[in-house]
Design a protein around this nucleic acid. Sequence first.
RNA 1: GCCCCUGUAGCUCAGCCUGGAUAGAGCACUAACCUUCUAAGUUAGGGGUCGAGGGUUCGAAUCCCUUCGGGGGCGCCA
Length: 567
Amino acid sequence: MLDKAKKEIEDAVAKAAKLTDHDVAQLLEVPRVEGQGDFALPCFKLAAKLKKDPKLIAKDIFAHLPKFKLIKKAEIVGPYLNFFVDTENLTKTVLEEAVKKDYGFSKAKKGKVIVEFLSPNTNKPLSLGHLRNAALGDSVSRILEANGFKVIRACLFNDRGVHINKSILAYQRWGKNRTPKSEGVKGDHFVGDYYVMFSKKAEEDPKLNDEVQEMLQKWEAGDRATLSIWGTLNGWVLDGFKQTLKDFGIEFDKEYFESAHYKKAKQLLMDYFKKGLFKRDDKGNIVAALDSHGLPDKVVLRADGTSVYMTQDITLAKMKYDEFKPEISIYVVGDEQNLHFQQLFAILKMLGIKAGQYHHLSYGMVNLPEGRMKSREGTVVDADDLIEELADTVKVEIETRHNHEFNEKKTEELAHKIGVGALKYYLLKFEPKTTMVFDPKRSVSLEGDTGPYVQYAFVRASKILEKETAKGKIKAEMLNLPEEIALIKQLARFPEVIAKAGKDYQPHLIAIYARELADLFNGFYEKAPVLKANKEVKNARLYLVDAVRHTLQKSLNLLGIDEVEVM
RNA sequence: GCCCCUGUAGCUCAGCCUGGAUAGAGCACUAACCUUCUAAGUUAGGGGUCGAGGGUUCGAAUCCCUUCGGGGGCGCCA
């Protein structure tokens, strides 16, 4: 399609200017302005190479252009040569392709990718920050699948350590055998409240911190009572997480629990140490020397044999490598850990745990308009609250906006899909590394550059096709309105957008694409009535609507957003 | 002190990797459009020294240097 047209131009230009393919590669660009064609060749670089006036070069090449198959015309504009694709040909190809299930998806069979994301601590409920992480991890997974990879979605639960023991201690002391059930609270919120309670009490009574350390030692020693209560609280939290993730539409293929490989990790690191891969510092800590990588040295195991974060990460990397032998291993983790991951990857290389490539998909913080979220100041946005709030807002919209008669269940279901769609879109439309500002008011907005806007375009397309569908041959010549041509060109871009989003791990490219497609469709919708058009035009437009509908759906799904049939 | 990210319209952000022809959206504001496939839509309007300075180039928001502002990191925290 477009790539073929591009190739055709490149070949022609190479021939006309008597150059090699290599010389011509990267010379073509896509003009932004209408009327400047679909591809353009600025002749300045050739001018430097050939030592000739770029305007003359443009003329010269133009004079030697062959007959094109996919290009309708070329024209000279000063030092530029603009090429226009044959839209009839394009239309036919695009409409045939875009209604297929796998349109835009790579047919190449690629290897395994393991995407680790979310990886929460099991001592408090999930927050808005976790949702950005989850939305990113899930969307990147979907995009990589579309690029032909086999993706394993992995999550590490940090379920042991000081943080969880704090909750336990507070619960033992002040919990009075209450349970999430007895209080009617989600388990993660229930436990999180005791965590907060601990922090408050410990400010008045610092001895509590010592008690937590004692408990930690008991836990490590395998004390049955401690393990039992730890298991109970962890279970509650995990149940809570499970519910949140279900609400948000996230699933994992592989779950890791730090508690399960914690002991093994220490042993593994000692083994590497004995092989001489690590050294001891003057305090007796086991350290990875990274100066050859231009990085600061890193403690991987404390002198007393207890583990640090890095101990776990090295071990988990090895476990993942041993089990899956992935081609690419991706970690979706906030950008405050950039250095940590540079160090981790350097260490893994040192140890020879180097399956394919490692990538830290680093993303920026989510700030509120007032600034950074701080748990101590209670300004953390809770994931469950947010999802619920959005669904409620949408529900009110549905009930007041239309005369549709949905029953209660249908309304709730719709409201949930639209609310979560709005949230995911909002979290994914920014480039990952952008430190984004989350404005709660704007996040519930359903107009403009939002998920519901895209979902709505899908609904409009669906409604047309519900009444009538396209039949028989595609008559491409029936589609020649500017709105139709623009729409077709946007559809033609879908494969390259997926490829780029996959190569760079950038879901926001899909979000932008989907928004633009919805935009163009709405323009078409205003200008070009489908069902009222005469027979042949109607049929061609029905094909176009169908292609748009499919592509909107795929775009949304790549973002982890459900399409809806009605709104 | 050192390292990384960042600065584009009143606000929130694309574009920067891979330099090209008049810098784009959305929100907000103003004015229109529903007996017409769902108005969660569309159209029109104003709004910019692309933080500043220098350099490279035929050409710089984009590449390089300097500088100022914002954020993050430099833990035997995660």
